[in-house]
Simulated scan of single mutants.
Amino acid sequence: MSEFDELQAVIRRHAEARQAEQRACEAFLNALYHALRTASGPGLPLNNVTLEFTADPAVRLRPAPTGSYHAAWLRLGLCEVLVRVRRADGSFQGEYGPGCAFRLELTSEDDLLALARTLLRDVTAAYGGEQVTSHLN
């Protein structure tokens, strides 16, 4: 078997795991989007929040290998923030904005709302000229 054939075989063998991971990360990003829409509280939806999945600019292989980040642009009114997320040790690990990171083992509505509110505060601080380096666990 040539090196090329070996590469193709490895990609095929791990296709299901990669696809499952991508679906999980995209579902997480979609849930974060919905949390951002309700971050202002019950009955106060943020209507100017949109979600656009995108290829992660740091991933240099397609299809992305297992363990890679998956990304989406979240438009928050007048600004956009790139959110990157991956599965790591059974939890969701991610990055957003200027040096902010998170790790969520549970993805309950409350956990996602806490992340959404932290993200909004961090983006506000970044535009306000404050140094931001949030690490939500």
Rank of each mutant, 00 (worst) to 15 (best):
G41Q: 03
Q19S: 04
E105K: 15
Q22C: 08
P42A: 13
E130A: 14
L61Y: 07
F102A: 05
L115S: 05
D89T: 08
A39E: 03
T118V: 15
H135W: 12
L44F: 05
P45L: 10
G43Q: 07
E6R: 10
H135T: 14
E26D: 01
H135A: 09
A17G: 13
E80M: 10
Y96S: 01
G67T: 01
A17D: 08
L119N: 02
S40T: 04
S91F: 12
M1P: 11
V81S: 04
H70V: 03
R37G: 12
R117L: 05
V10T: 14
L106A: 10
L32N: 01
L7A: 11
W73G: 03
R62L: 07
W73P: 09
M1K: 12
G41P: 13
P42M: 06
S134Y: 00
S134P: 13
R75L: 08
E109A: 15
L136Y: 03
D5Q: 14
Y33C: 11
E3K: 15
T107Q: 12
L36C: 11
L82E: 09
A9W: 05
L104Q: 05
L120C: 09
Q131K: 14
A17Q: 15
F28N: 05
P65S: 03
S68Q: 10
R75Y: 00
W73H: 10
P98A: 08
T66H: 04
F92L: 06
T38N: 08
A58H: 07
P65E: 01
E109D: 12
G94Q: 06
V59E: 02
A35P: 04
R18S: 00
L120W: 11
Q19T: 03
V123P: 05
A64D: 02
R84Q: 08
R121T: 04
D56P: 03
N137S: 12
A20I: 09
A24Y: 05
G97P: 01
Q93L: 13
A31L: 04
Q131L: 11
L51W: 02
L74E: 07
G77R: 07
V123I: 14
G90N: 05
L44A: 11
N137G: 08
F53H: 00
T50H: 06
E16H: 11
R23S: 14
L46C: 08
P45N: 08
G129Y: 09
S91L: 15
D122G: 13
L61P: 03
Q131I: 10
Q19I: 04
A39G: 03
